[in-house]
Amino acid sequence: MSLNVLITGGAGYVGSHVVKTLEKSGYFTVVYDNLSTGRADWIPDAELVVGDIGDQAALSRVFKRYSFDAVIHLAARVSAPESIKKPLRYYADNLCGSIALLKQSRKHQIPCFIHASSAAVYGNPGVAPVGENAPLLPINPYGASKMMAERAIMDISGSSDMRWTILRYFNVAGADVKTCVGQRPENPVHLIPKACRAAGLGQDISIFGDDYDTIDGSCVRDYIHVKDLAHIHLLALEYLAGKNPSIVLNCGLGRGSSVKEVLNTAQRVSGKNFTVNRKPRRPGDAPVLVADNALLKKTLNWTPRYQNVSEIIETSWICHQRLTGRRSKN
């Protein structure tokens, strides 16, 4: 199947892997990205248009220039702690940006729309694993902005023929060891790349809260490898192209790992020790977020290639070493 696909945020970490996966399957991809966190050299074979997601005029020109069969919306701000400090920025980009894209999608009669949402929409669900029908009670502006964008998609599609798939990401991690695209070892944001940096440099790393009601007191998260997640986007695109109904799907392995477990595993995989500092809890952090992925597996016939957090960390560590070694030689 060959379709023309617009991918917003396609030059970023997840986006570059989605682009590569779709291109290998014969899709023509156009990436729309402001390159604030992404890089053009991560998507060398894609058509790149540089622009902001909230720029209606720029979006309109892109939609007029190409005839898209589908839109995959990945452009977003993704840090829950940052969203506490900068809520307006998150509502502007994640909600208003989504609405700008939906406006053009409806105007140009796009039949298939895939949206990258987040497990943060559940807030603190109080159950593990959590299913797609659980109440949406976000506890930070990031989760709230994603929840509102979901509702906008559902409402706007009700006045058109657009069908959608909402993918609720849990914690995305890992790397493609052949290319190492999407990796920024010099300024990591999330836990696993931070652990790799700590191992590589012998730096300290912090745990925010070790008094939660979990197996070891630290937060528990469900980690999914970025290549497995990229494959889900391909399957979701095929699902919608097959005229199947709109659906919400959790994207996770279905098993949790605590922060302490991740850090211990990173030390074992790397063979390096680092100091772990205990700090107070951060506002907006849920104790446990683990996916019930039964619907994902059933609907898309999906099976993860990377089955545990140790395998995920191994790929991150390989790429961390490769990229930092390359920089030290330059």
Rank of each mutant, 00 (worst) to 15 (best):
A70N: 02
Y66W: 01
I53Q: 06
A266V: 14
G182N: 01
V71L: 13
K20G: 08
D228M: 02
N330D: 09
L253S: 15
G252E: 10
S206W: 07
K64T: 01
A40E: 08
M147I: 08
V220T: 13
H233D: 06
A266N: 09
V226E: 05
R151C: 14
H225Q: 10
V248S: 00
Y142R: 04
V30D: 00
K178E: 15
P287N: 15
P280M: 11
N264H: 07
S2H: 11
G200Y: 04
T315K: 05
E186I: 04
N187H: 15
S79Y: 13
V78F: 09
N244T: 01
A46T: 10
L295C: 01
K329D: 06
H231E: 10
L237I: 10
K103F: 14
Y306Q: 03
L22T: 01
I153S: 01
M1Q: 11
N187R: 12
A80L: 14
P44K: 00
R151H: 06
A266K: 09
A128P: 03
Y13R: 15
Q104H: 14
D222I: 04
S206L: 06
R89H: 12
D285I: 12
L74C: 03
A199R: 02
Q109D: 13
Y27Q: 05
G10Q: 15
V30Y: 00
E261T: 08
Q203C: 06
S157E: 02
V177S: 11
I153F: 01
G209D: 07
E261I: 07
S60C: 12
C112Q: 14
R77V: 09
V127I: 03
R168K: 14
V71M: 06
S98Q: 04
M154V: 05
I205V: 05
M148F: 08
Q307L: 09
S98A: 08
R327H: 10
L201P: 02
A241R: 10
E261Y: 15
T324E: 02
I43M: 06
C96N: 13
Q104N: 03
G15D: 12
K279I: 03
D176L: 12
T8G: 02
T29L: 02
N124F: 03
C251R: 09
V248E: 00
I139K: 06
L237K: 13
G54N: 00
K86D: 10
E150V: 03
V259H: 14
L136P: 11
K194F: 12
G252V: 08
V71T: 04
V220E: 05
P129W: 12
A58F: 01
I99P: 03
R278W: 02
N308W: 11
